[in-house]
Amino acid sequence: MTVSAYIFFDVKLGKTQEVLNQLRSIPNITNVAVVTGEWDIVARITIDNLEELYLITSEQIHLIEGIIDTQTAIIEKEIIRE
């Protein structure tokens, strides 16, 4: 069963587009949005298991230059309007 999570990013000034492009090149990231407020970017990721989430965050996302801080929120349950 697949697992989905939201990752919130705090990004260095002037690096937003670069970070966006790098995030969009990760196949597991299905949706990326630039937002106003507490965070700069919100991404949605879908993976096979938590081990894969750890690998993608530690080996790919955390190496992207320009990211100051991240927070990952795993989706426990999702209700979509029909």
């Binding site: 999570a5 939201y6 927070q71 990952t72 929120a73 795993i74 989706i75 426990e76 349950k77 999702e78 209700i79 979509i80 309007r81």
Partner: peptide, 15 residues
């Protein structure tokens, strides 16, 4: 206007 609701782990409970 509410499209979907996710129960999430971490600082917040709902997205």
């Amino acid at each position: 206007g509410v499209e979907n609701v996710s129960f999430i782990t971490g600082k917040h409970d709902l997205l």
